[in-house]
Write a protein that binds this DNA or RNA. Structure first.
Lengths: 114, 114
DNA sequence: ATCCTATATACAGGAGAGCTATATATCAAG
DNA sequence: CTTGATATATAGCTCTCCTGTATATAGGAT
């Protein structure tokens, strides 16, 4: 109920490509991934932690990412995720799909890449 | 289940801005809107008729579009939708929201506007 | 010392958009 | 006269993200 901004709807389905891209170069744990998304998009794009963790489990189930538990003194246990070979292929494909979608949205709705 | 392409998820939430944009200049009926979307995006973006009609009813409920039934000899009855003043404001806002989202997706995930 | 915030993960229940499947009905073409 | 394109409509489902809640540790403030 429903002062939902369009961006709330826009981002649906984008969590996968975003997470895969964030851990493309180096592994990160869940909480860190959430913070990085917010930081790197200047707050334009955010996901709730509950939703983010759920997405991580889903991606791991599909074999696109792999988690590794790390316990250090003076720190809570953290699960670091890295991308798999299968995940890299999916990331490449999803970048193409999103790019095509964005182009279509520009054509049909006049949405410009600012 | 689930050879869903990323574009299937991407487009979630985009129907509103797309429909509003299609009827921005001139009114169209539902079936025609569906065909125009497919045509103008070279088939990149499509919506099922069931989903499109449901979205039209939703937009009308919100007062963003207005339907007018037209019956002509030699034609099935058609409901032509035009955008309302409220709809134009929403369209402007949604274009901004989507633009911001696309910019964020470029920053965080390297998705480029082809 | 104790409270509060940030850190860190986890799960149950629900909302909402688009999907498939199905139904109805008209018109043009073969 | 059957098929396909046109045109609208509804029921039920899936999937993703949401809110709300729970647990637990570290560090700073009162």
């Amino acid at each position: 109920m429903s002062n939902r901004s369009a961006i709330d709807e826009a981002k649906k389905g984008s969590a996968e490509v975003v997470i895969l891209a964030v851990i493309e170069q180096e592994s990160h744990h869940g909480y860190e991934i959430a913070k990085l998304i917010e930081l790197r998009t200047d707050g334009s794009l955010t996901f709730t932690l509950a939703s983010l963790y759920a997405t991580l489990y889903r991606l791991e189930d599909r074999g696109w990412i792999r988690g590794r538990w790390v316990e250090k003194a003076g720190q809570r246990r953290r699960c670091y995720y890295r991308i798999t070979d299968a995940g890299r292929k999916v990331l490449t494909q999803q970048r193409e799909d999103w790019s095509r979608f964005v182009a279509a949205l520009g054509q049909i709705a006049g949405v410009k890449y600012a």
